[in-house]
């Protein structure tokens, strides 16, 4: 497989925003590296899907969204939750299964929720969030609210009926929704070209009359610019589909032996890693010193250490509460 060249970096953002995006990516990276370690120690159980390698998408997109917007995400959503404003403490506690977690320990890694930041989850059914996002957008439209709904999903979702039904509904009804597709080339272990007759995802979305954008998902600046345009389009004109071309450096989940791709391919993509390429670019531009980078990295690491301590100190929801919230108390 041909790996595209490293991000070209034509656009330059204000230094403050650039450093914030770098810090965002570092926070996800350090948090997830720790998650992998904690999984090995069996502190985190169940499925754990790491986002390592794809951080530029969540980072660039989240800073383009507004506080009133709705977010719908997938089971690979730790980074999205974090950058949306869910505290790392609450995310880590959730992965520990503690009641201080953002879903009180009932959801785990795949089901992070947060009403306060309008983070509608962690949906672990591929494409399951897409119709939901259309509905959230419909509610906003009917209530004449300004909010946009941003829906993240992987390219595996485009094979599902829910994708096609949602594209059609969103376009037919002109809904304020941005469908943000993180194309990391593999649906678990199935490569895109092995599962889709049409591998140009924008063509699929465009067939429903959706506006589309195709973006280098390893370039946080390009992502941010695309997401900003996507939000504006969704708010003013209606639905848009954005394909972020990215790559997952780690296995699909912690159970994946990665028999479906060559190590050399992974290594080649790592040369395009969103954090080190952006770091190098910022240094070349004179926006970042090594000292400042180390500060940002240390701050991310400190936040992780605190989050782990918080999760460790967390408590278990009493088993007597098991049936609470199957239904809403009336």
């Amino acid at each position: 497989m041909k790996v595209p060249p490293p991000p070209a970096g034509k656009v330059k953002l204000p230094a403050k925003l650039s450093l914030a995006l770098l810090a965002d990516m570092l926070r996800i990276r350090r948090m997830e590296e720790k998650c992998a370690e904690l999984y090995g120690q069996q502190k985190i159980r169940g499925f754990l899907h790491l986002y390592i390698g794809e951080e530029a998408v969540a980072a660039g997109a989240m800073r383009a969204l507004e506080p009133e917007d709705n977010i719908v995400a997938t089971y690979r959503e730790h980074g999205h939750a974090l950058l949306r404003g869910v505290s790392m403490d609450a995310i880590m506690a959730e992965m520990y299964g503690k009641q201080e977690g953002c879903s009180r320990g009932r959801g785990g890694s795949m089901h992070l929720f947060d009403a306060q930041t309008r983070f509608y989850g962690g949906n672990a059914i591929v494409a399951g969030g897409l119709p939901l996002a259309a509905g959230l957008a419909l509610a906003a439209k009917l209530q004449k609210e300004k909010r946009v709904t941003a829906c993240f999903f992987g390219e595996g979702a485009v094979a599902e009926g829910a994708f096609h039904e949602s594209m059609n509904l969103a376009a037919l009804w002109g809904l304020p929704v941005a469908y943000l597709c993180e194309n990391n080339l593999y649906a678990m272990g199935t490569a895109l070209e092995r599962s889709e007759a049409q591998t140009d995802l924008c063509v699929k979305a465009a067939s429903y009359g959706m506006a589309t954008l195709k973006v280098d998902g390893m370039d946080v600046v390009a992502v941010h610019e695309a997401a900003r345009r996507a939000r504006e389009h969704a708010a003013k004109k209606g639905p848009i589909f954005v394909e972020f071309q990215t790559y997952r450096f780690r296995a699909h989940s912690m159970f994946d032996p990665e028999l479906y791709r060559e190590k050399s391919e992974v290594e080649a993509w790592k040369t395009r890693g969103p954090i080190h390429t952006f770091t190098a670019r910022l240094k070349a531009q004179g926006d970042l010193t090594e000292e400042r980078f180390l500060e940002l990295d240390a701050a991310a690491q400190a936040e992780v250490d605190e989050a782990v301590a918080f999760a460790e100190a967390g408590t278990w929801e009493p088993a007597e509460h098991l049936t609470a919230d199957v239904y809403t108390p009336q």
Binding site: N70, Y120, G128, L130, P131, L132, A133, A134, G135, L136, A137, L138, A139, A140, L142, Q143, T149, G161, A162, E165, S166, N168, L169
Partner: peptide, 17 residues
């Protein structure tokens, strides 16, 4: 699109409708 509009109904309910 039963799957699509039922899901949209869920989303709309979450969104205050």
């Amino acid at each position: 699109s039963e799957l699509g509009f039922t899901g949209a109904g869920i989303g709309a309910a979450l969104g205050g409708m």
